[in-house]
């Protein structure tokens, strides 16, 4: 049990100190890690909705895109500083999620696909509302992340720290929420919704709250991405990849755990870019699809629980070995 408290602390220290120290000078790898963390952030938000809200979304690209657009336009057209604009991007995505909330009345697959419909609608709106979004041509020269206390956050290492902090804060919030009474009620709603309602749990309101929270985090991540790559167009911001990759990552890592989605994103994205892409330049997503299928069929709880089980098993065998020796 004690390892459960130490392991995350070690991981966090490693992520903040070791990774930049070891890889900070390799620009290419650093930018891959930043991209993986971006996916990881969405994956955490997606998994939170699935695990606590019991909802599968096929349209998180909608919230990513809205966050990116709101933040980019606020900095460019209203002169907002970048960080407040990123938070506003998250808020924008949360407000956009309110539009999708009537879909909460719908059962699983209908909900999943109506969010997909919203993602399509938002993309088309971003293309058509040229006077606001500048249309299909996209937005160029979006302001970069600022320099804070002499530290340039727009550098590779700087943006790494920014997205890492966003993702870890999301995970910390998620962990806190899951342990709270509201989190317990949400967990229980998954299988026993009527029983939770009759003790006074306003289940639809809690689900709506989860959706808004998940959208907010995804929106902030989208906003980060806009300021990191400084370019945006509707097809990019609302690309289906912002939905597919986080789902694969979360399912692969284990969507019912806190760390699973992030672990999944790092493993999946880095292996995909460094290995699969090298021998399959086009269509390497086929392997992601295969992984998704394999995980659902073979280990639907994902990698992190699988590893945990294996570790426990090995530990037990080892202890038993000791006992036998003694």
């Amino acid at each position: 049990m004690r390892a459960n408290g130490i392991l995350p602390a070690v991981a966090v220290i490693a992520l903040y100190l070791l990774v930049p120290a070891a890889l900070g000078h390799v620009d290419y790898v650093m930018s891959l890690i930043v991209a993986a963390l971006t996916i990881g952030g969405i994956a955490v938000a997606w998994a939170m909705l699935g695990n606590l809200g019991g909802m599968v979304s096929f349209g998180h690209a909608a919230f990513f895109g809205v966050g990116a657009y709101v933040s980019a336009l606020l900095t460019l057209d209203a002169g907002w500083p970048v960080f407040p604009a990123m938070l506003a991007g998250g808020a924008g995505a949360a407000i956009a999620s309110v539009v999708t909330m009537p879909a909460l009345r719908l059962r699983g697959p209908y909900f999943a696909l109506s969010i997909l419909a919203f993602a399509h609608i938002f993309r088309i709106l971003a293309t058509e509302l040229e006077s606001i979004t500048r249309g299909a041509g996209g937005i160029l020269s979006i302001p970069v992340l600022p320099t804070v206390a002499g530290f340039d956050l727009s550098s590779k290492i700087g943006s790494y720290y920014v997205i890492l902090t966003i993702v870890l804060m999301a995970m910390a919030g998620y962990a806190w929420l899951r342990r709270s009474t509201v989190g317990l009620a949400l967990l229980a709603m998954h299988d026993t919704e009527d029983a939770t309602k009759v003790v006074g749990v306003p289940s639809t309101r809690l689900k709506a709250m989860m959706l808004a929270l998940s959208a907010f985090i995804t929106g902030v991540v989208g906003a980060f991405n806009a300021h990191q790559i400084n370019f945006l167009d509707p097809d990019y911001a609302f690309s289906g990849l912002w939905t597919v990759l986080p789902i694969v990552a979360a399912i692969f890592g284990g969507y019912r755990t806190i760390s699973g989605p992030l672990v999944g994103a790092l493993v999946i994205y880095l292996v995909d870019q460094l290995v699969f892409k090298s021998f399959l330049p086009h269509g390497h997503e086929i392997i992601l699809g295969a992984l998704l299928v394999a995980m659902i069929v073979l280990s639907p709880t994902g990698l992190v629980p699988l590893v945990r089980q294996t570790v426990t098993l090995v530990r037990q065998t080892v202890t038993r070995g000791h006992h036998a020796a003694a």
Binding site: G50, V56, F58, R107, G108, P109, A112, V244, I247, V248, I251, G283, H284, E285, I286, L288, G289, A290, L291, L292, V293, I296, V297, P300
Partner: peptide
């Protein structure tokens, strides 16, 4: 219900890229 949705979603990705 939900796992089959993700499963067939994955199969769709496989087929498209195939």
């Amino acid at each position: 219900e939900l796992n089959s949705l993700i499963l067939t979603f994955g199969i769709g990705i496989i087929l498209t890229n195939f």
